[in-house]
Nucleic acid binder design. Structure first.
Lengths: 243, 243
DNA sequence: GATGTTAAGAGTTATATAAGACCTTAACCA
DNA sequence: TGGTTAAGGTCTTATATAACTCTTAACATC
């Protein structure tokens, strides 16, 4: 790629930003990598350090890169902190957030339903991996999660790791499958607990549950995970901060 | 206030940012005002335009200021768009967001409950204004809202405007009371509809409702509104985008 | 000789400044 | 009425210097 400085063209720092994003999405730089210093990139691209810096700044605000003064700039990784901070919103009544432990109930392959296929942008009836698990908060089963993954991306999962899945899946996606979840869209509803829900959570059937349907996307915007969580909110709630 | 450039002191642009925020919170600049240009501020404060610019940039990211190239920089206002975009999260099943019309049921004074006082940081038993209203989505009553406001700030409301309240309250707070809502914290739960809820929404008692408890804060971080919404989510859902 | 402390240096990001390009508006003129 | 221009705002880019982090080597101490 060559940068254009012609009159009326896109600003340099935007072009550089796109170029840096491309290096991440293509896997040339992977999570945890140190990217070249601002000065190196500036020399390579024939612009000033400040211009590279502006591009990087926006990517840091997007959670694509992480800066550490005196150290360098890194491709952001999915550690537990990020999972908690960005993607987990359930807190207990004291407002404290703790990542729940998980117990996998099943992990099998099936054909995607119409809805699932549409939300994951798969062709009708494509194969998916379907995980079901419960999660404990404050030592009480509180959440039932159903996770749908395209088999084309996560094929290995069906075979090997059926029952010993780690607690933070996004870390696994990143390290084992080279897939980094970058953002998500969540749709929340109140639903009545089914018999199945109720027995797993120790509630009466018909009890109100908070249903969170999350579509998780990569940096490129491809949906790669569909996750439906049904939560008992008698001792916990979903916390959202509106800026 | 004087800026400090001594070695080891806080960066200039942060000091400028604080200074600009102060001018907004003190009411020296009010929503809609044009603030002095970057160059004017730079001259006034004896720094370069770029330094002022960096301060303003962060405030734009915080939704405190709004820039318009060629026009100037303005203090952000609470128009309908902002209300919709930042503070209203209910969309219909097609993903479309429409601000619901409101019907005020009651507007009266009372003493704050313990919880209300604590969440609004009022002394125990302080006077509050309590508004109850329903809101229609797609021509169907879908939300019941209970709004609690400190009477110390919103005294006038109790008297005059009892029944002809506008649809977007935050605009009213800003224009009539000089109070700008800057951010909010929302706590979501699934609850069972009471008889009262059910009759207002045309549902069976016990039907699951999504309860949203929102605390709205000023730029200074003072809580100024407590709002509890109970929503039927059979044809709508709460949309949250996680970046 | 082994170990802990200090100082210097190289490499990195962070801050501040300056200059010109670009955008918007309004006044002016043909 | 429509085009031109000037003024004044933000936006982009470049450059210089400060602040921070880590490594290494010199040195004192046990």
């Amino acid at each position: 790629m060559v940068l254009s400085t012609a009159k009326g063209s896109i600003p340099l720092y935007i072009q550089i930003k796109d170029l840096l994003v491309a290096r991440v999405t293509e896997g040339k730089w992977v999570p945890g990598d140190t990217i070249p210093s601002e000065i190196q990139l500036a020399r390579e691209l024939n612009v000033s350090q400040g211009t590279v810096r502006k591009a990087i700044t926006e990517l840091v605000e997007n959670n694509v890169l992480v800066r550490r003064q005196g150290r360098g700039t890194f491709v952001a990784t999915h550690d537990v902190d990020r999972a908690l901070f960005h993607f987990f919103h359930i807190v207990n009544d004291s407002g404290i957030k703790i990542l729940p432990e998980s117990k996998t109930l099943s992990c099998r392959k099936k054909r995607a339903s119409r809805q699932e296929a549409s939300k994951l942008k798969l062709s009708n009836g494509a194969q998916v991996v379907c995980i079901e698990r419960t999660r404990k908060l404050d030592n009480q089963p509180t959440i039932i999660e159903t996770i749908i993954l395209p088999q084309s991306l996560f094929g290995e999962l069906g075979k090997r790791q059926a029952r010993n899945l780690p607690n933070t899946l996004y870390e696994l996606y990143e390290t084992q499958f080279g897939i980094t979840i970058h953002r998500a869209e969540e749709q929340l509803r109140a639903v009545a607990a089914s018999e199945h829900d109720a027995s797993l959570l120790g509630l009466e059937p018909g009890a109100p549950l908070l249903e969170i349907e999350r579509t998780a996307l990569t940096l490129g915007g491809t949906p790669v995970e569909l996750r439906i969580s049904r939560c008992s909110t008698s001792k916990h709630y979903y916390q959202n901060t509106v800026l």
